[in-house]
Design a protein around this nucleic acid. Structure first.
Length: 864
RNA sequence: GCGGGUGUGGUGAAAUUGGUAGACACGCUAGAUUUAGGAUCUAGUGCCGCGAGGUGUGUGGGUUCGAGUCCCUCCACCCGCACCA
């Protein structure tokens, strides 16, 4: 099966709709037709009866169905398996949460206030059946939401107030929106989220059985980021009885804790902060919120910053008072958003302690940590009571046991992988099959929700997503108080399409079990390594989910994968002066604070921008102003990078097909280099490949029916058959082309003229140059179609030769060549070489220490 | 900083298991042919050297009869993630 489809929801179509007012379905349709034309023109053999489009309601109906099933599922951590929510309900009704551990946030009850739920302040998550029964329907639905695999929760987004919309990281440049150069802030928003983190361990473990490159597997492991350590509770005075939970990979260093740090957004910051510190803390929090995620984490040198809350925690083992700070370097989204700081043993804690003159207790034997930090694991601990004299490898398990005994902590495994935000405030995506009764979301399962028409593809004035523009009667289904206004992200439809290929027209199921059992996993997946931490992880997640629930019989989507290299393009840039609509030429860009923006390469000739076309390109540039160079021109910057729609550096194959033909383009692309390597798109060498195809044509054009092939010609042909077959098997398409070039050159030299003899060559060429191959097949008198012919076999008798030429080397340096009968044994080769007159020149006056004869390959004579 | 990848002529690259480094092309040089050409053909083309020869796969070392290939060291560039407790 060799199918093709379109991941046809997404930003470029939506952006175009915003600019032109045309419905994205219309432009998408046109684009698909265009792609199909190009694919056909290039001679690709896809099974078009299996084509899918993620934006087709008949397809996204099943994307919606999978979402609904995720919503109706929870994860049993004991069984490591996704299960239907009905099973969890049964448990809750009989035992509460006493005998089951659903995957959830460590403090899932934190946003369910004690007053409104049947528990008090000291509730720690151990819900009883009685408490469950005491909840009303609304409360029960909120509790269940904490355990669903698709759930609603607050999450931070890039919010651009001026545009009234949420931006992707891609659309934010230097803290300003790429479009319009407006400020962007971080904002909490109610979002659909996928509980991929529940699958973390399986996503790591199951990598072992996959035939993928080690680099991709390693990158996924790092992304998932398993770390072992302990969860430790630090008590607080205020509010009395409360605790800060931290995760640490080094519980053995707990006696070196001299302060604690919370993320500025941490829930406990408010109650911890003393009256005197209130203002400073507030200011720090505001400053942190105004920084974009990129700025806060990445930008430039990491300057330490933080603020004392005025509050204190209690050390779980020593009972000492420990100051609690907030700082940027602790991330709200990782672990518990809080750390115990051990300045002696952690780089960042050490820098922080130095910057704010906090104590650095010495806990490593013979190491003075006043001047430098020690992060190794080879030195024994000191000043650590029961861990004194032990190296970390011994002390870590001891520390965990000790904390557990005292009830102050537990051993824990943490994963870096975060749950995946599944909402987009966009129009051109799958609508959710969800309506709301008040705050409570409800699934719509008896009818498919399709995208309603809207008057504009922009957010509403209140900042609601575009779908909020649809009036009640615009929706094909309306339920509850309102419909869900968000749409699904791009990766929704692309996470399962390979299953739809197996059963593309099924209107009763996403894919019948019979079909998925028949086809099984994808045997070979050729895709880009740039999807490592996105698509390739999400597909694995959804596959495991569908497997757990019994809808498919395998738990990994892609058995074997080859990562093709990216084709790189040459991008052009313009430089916008920050906060203005003024663009400065490349030569003068350093005189201003600018944002570098991609510009469509079609508007640029030899790096000179056509400013009129540029102004017409997008409405926001209609009244752009330009600062030109001395020649009155606007020069663009340039860079070679991934060829991509979002970088506006895409070159279409059309012109090349026009002047050289589709077969030349196909062959040239293969000839450029190995499949897995990145290659800049450069058409310089295309004439060489074009020449080759013309020579090939000439070879077939001068055939004579009466001609009979010589032995030498047979040897050339069969050598070529073998090389091409072998190289195709190992996906070395670049050397397939050069083997064919060599074969054709040699056959031309050998004046091959027998049409029948040349027929296998036409078949060899058919995978790389199908159009020409068909013509050659006809020219050589072949019947029917070249593509239906059996692949030629290389005959052994033409591959062997009765003679073999040995390179003769002395001390590893090749000096001359010697041709001997192929069946001559090593001993005889040796004596022939040593008695050869040319050998005497090198041997004379020296001692032959050793003679190495590698049969069929080389002879090496070691002299001293 | 962490992780991954890549380093071979002027350029894209080949060398599949440790066995003649630079196949096959592009480009370049010279010549032939042509009204002309960015067409075609012939010869040459890693570097140094008139030559014999020497030298050469990012650097330095090692293993081996033999290393682009294996081991160690360092360097450069590219990609991803960027304070992950």
């Amino acid at each position: 099966m060799h199918p093709m489809g379109y991941d046809s929801f997404g930003l470029p179509a939506e952006q175009y709709a915003i600019q032109t007012g045309q419905h994205p379905a219309v432009t998408t349709e046109a684009n698909v037709a265009r792609y199909r034309e190009q694919l056909d023109q290039l001679g690709f053999c896809y099974d078009w009866s299996r084509e899918v489009r993620t934006s087709d309601p008949a397809y996204y109906r099943w994307t919606q169905w999978i979402f609904a099933e995720l919503f109706e599922s929870w994860y049993d951590t004991a069984a490591q398996c996704a299960k239907p929510i009905s099973a969890l309900l049964d448990m809750l009704n009989s035992d509460g949460l006493t005998s089951v551990q659903p995957a959830c946030d460590g403090d899932w009850w934190i946003e369910l206030p004690a007053g409104e739920y049947p528990w008090d302040e000291s509730f720690g998550g151990a819900l009883t059946a009685d408490q469950w029964h005491a909840c009303d329907a609304r409360a029960q639905s909120h509790i269940l939401m904490q355990f669903r695999l698709a759930y609603l929760a607050d999450s931070e987004v890039n919010w651009c107030p001026a545009l009234g919309t949420v931006l992707a990281n891609d659309e934010v440049k230097d803290g300003l929106s790429e479009r319009g150069s407006h400020p962007v802030v971080r904002k909490r928003m109610r979002q659909w989220i996928m509980r991929i983190s529940a699958f973390s361990q399986r996503l790591i473990d199951d990598l072992n059985a996959l035939d993928w490159t080690d680099s991709i597997k390693e990158a996924q492991r790092n992304w998932i980021g398993r770390s072992e350590g302990a969860s430790v509770h630090f008590g607080l005075d205020n509010p009395a009885g409360s605790t800060i939970e931290v995760f640490t990979t080094r519980p053995d260093t707990i006696y070196g804790v001299s302060f604690m740090v919370l993320a500025p957004e941490h829930d406990l910051v408010e109650s911890l902060t003393s009256a005197e510190q209130k203002e400073a803390v507030k200011a720090y929090q505001t400053a942190a919120a105004q920084k974009s995620e990129r700025e806060r984490q990445g930008a430039g040198e990491h300057e330490v910053s933080g603020c004392f809350t005025g509050g204190y925690a209690v050390h779980p083992l020593t009972g000492e008072k420990i100051p609690v700070w907030i700082a940027d370097y602790v991330l709200a989204g990782y672990g518990t958003g809080a750390i115990m700081a051990v300045p002696a043993g952690d780089e960042r804690d050490w820098k922080f302690a130095k910057a704010y003159s906090l104590a650095i207790p010495a806990i490593f034997e013979g190491v003075d940590t006043a001047d430098s930090v020690y992060t190794g694991k080879d030195i024994a601990l000191c000043n650590s009571n029961e861990f004194d004299g032990k190296v970390p490898i011994e002390a870590i398990p001891l520390a965990i046991a000790h904390l557990e005994k005292k009830g102050m902590g537990t051993g824990q495994v943490n994963y870096r992988l975060r749950d995946a935000v599944f909402s987009r405030q966009r129009y051109w995506g799958e609508p959710f099959p969800i309506c709301y009764h008040g705050e409570v979301p409800q699934l719509i399962r008896d009818a498919q929700v399709t995208l309603p028409p809207v008057d504009a593809y922009l957010p509403t004035e209140d900042g609601d997503p575009p779908l909020a523009r649809a009036k009640k009667e615009d929706w094909n289904v309306t339920r509850g108080d309102r419909m869900e206004y968000n749409t699904m992200p791009g990766w929704a439809g692309s996470s399962w399409y390979f299953l739809r290929y197996m059963d593309p027209h099924n209107s009763a199921e996403f894919c019948s079990r019979e079909k998925s059992d028949y086809w099984g996993q994808v045997d070979l997946y050729i895709g880009g390594a740039e999807h490592t931490t996105g698509h390739l992880l999400y597909s694995r997640f959804w596959t495991k989910f569908l497997f757990d629930r019994g809808w498919i019989g395998f738990n990994e989507p892609f058995k074997r994968m080859i990562n093709q290299g990216m084709i790189l393009g040459r991008s052009n840039f313009v430089y916008r002066i920050q906060g203005t609509n003024q663009f400065v030429t490349f030569e003068k860009r350093k005189e201003f604070q600018t944002q570098r923006l991609h510009v469509d390469i079609n508007l640029v000739q030899s790096d000179k921008l056509d400013v009129d076309e540029f102004m017409a390109w997008r409405p926001e540039y209609a009244n752009a102003e330009f600062i030109l160079n001395e020649n009155g021109e606007y020069t663009c910057g340039h860079e070679v990078e991934k060829m991509s729609k979002s970088k506006f550096n895409v070159q279409t194959p059309d012109d090349l097909v026009e002047s050289y033909g589709a077969d030349t383009l196909r062959c040239y692309e293969m000839f450029l280099g190995p499949l897995t390597q990145h290659k800049p798109w450069d058409t310089q060498g295309i004439s060489g490949v074009h020449n080759f195809l013309r020579k090939l044509h000439r070879l077939f054009n001068r055939t004579k029916a009466s001609s009979i092939a010589t032995d030498a010609q047979h040897r050339i042909l069969h050598k070529t058959i073998k090389k091409v077959s072998d190289d195709l098997d190992r996906n070395a398409f670049n050397t397939v082309i050069s083997a064919l070039m060599i074969g054709v050159n040699e056959l031309l030299d050998a004046e091959a003229q027998s049409a029948e003899f040349l027929q296998p060559l036409a078949i060899l060429v058919s995978p790389v140059a199908p159009h020409l191959a068909e013509e050659l097949w006809q020219l050589s008198g072949g019947a029917n179609n070249v593509l239906d012919q059996a692949w030629p076999a290389a005959e052994e008798r033409w591959l062997t030769s009765d003679e073999v030429t040995y390179p003769i080397s002395f001390n590893g340096k090749v000096r001359f060549k010697l041709t001997v009968p192929a069946d001559l044994d090593a001993k005889s080769v040796e004596s022939q070489v040593l008695t050869h007159e040319k050998a005497q020149d090198y041997i004379t006056g020296k001692t032959v220490r050793k003679v190495i004869v590698v049969p069929g390959r080389i002879v090496n004579i070691v002299l001293s």
